[in-house]
């Protein structure tokens, strides 16, 4: 059953009902937000930390949410910012190996929570070569089949720019397969 967002938002702002309303929100969005984050950062523990941050920020800032967009869009926006900030910090700290592709492959190979085959591993390697925001666009369109209009609200980018970004990302990934396989 679809959430009654107006009612939920009213309950979230009311101190007496805030916690139970937030529990509904958490139950509804834990999984989709987790996968949104996991596809970006790959590692389960990192995705777990970012998911916690996302919900804590939503909880503490709910009064600042104006209701101009859907709650889901707002949550995705927080999660996206968390992921991009994390990846930028990771790049800045040189945590990721300079040889990004090899690093990803090694990490996934050793990851007990990754059970893709070799092709899937290469696919993830190819995705890691995309700039973070372009990868985000690819993931949201390819895996989540999100509408460009919704993506535009989450990412603050025009629909035209998103279409172009997705098109370029698809070309890069397809070229990766053509060259590699």
């Amino acid at each position: 059953m679809a959430l009654n967002e107006e009612l939920l938002l009213r309950q979230l702002r009311e101190p007496k009902t805030a916690q139970s309303a937030f529990a509904v929100l958490v139950k509804e969005y834990t999984e989709p937000l987790y996968w949104h984050l996991r596809r970006m950062v790959l590692d389960h523990d990192d995705a777990n930390d970012l998911l916690q941050n996302t919900f804590i920020k939503a909880w503490t800032n709910i009064d600042g949410f104006q209701g101009n967009s859907k709650i889901s869009t707002w949550l995705y926006r927080i999660a996206t910012n968390e992921a991009l900030t994390f990846l930028n910090r990771q790049n800045a700290n040189d945590i990721v190996s300079l040889d990004n592709e090899e690093g990803t492959a090694v990490n996934l190979e050793a990851d007990e929570y990754f059970d893709g085959d070799e092709l899937q591993q290469r696919f993830q390697e190819a995705l890691q070569t995309l700039p973070p925001k372009q990868r985000m666009v690819f993931n949201m369109k390819y895996f989540d089949e999100m509408k460009y209009e919704d993506m535009s609200e989450v990412l603050g980018t025009s629909v035209g720019a998103l279409k172009a970004s997705y098109h370029v990302a698809v070309q890069k990934i397809a070229a990766f397969f053509q060259d590699d396989i």
Binding site: W35, R38, R39, L42, F114, Q120, F123, F177
Partner: peptide
């Protein structure tokens, strides 16, 4: 080649 399945657990 890879579908849209989820290889993560």
């Amino acid at each position: 080649k890879v579908g849209t399945g989820n290889p993560f657990k």
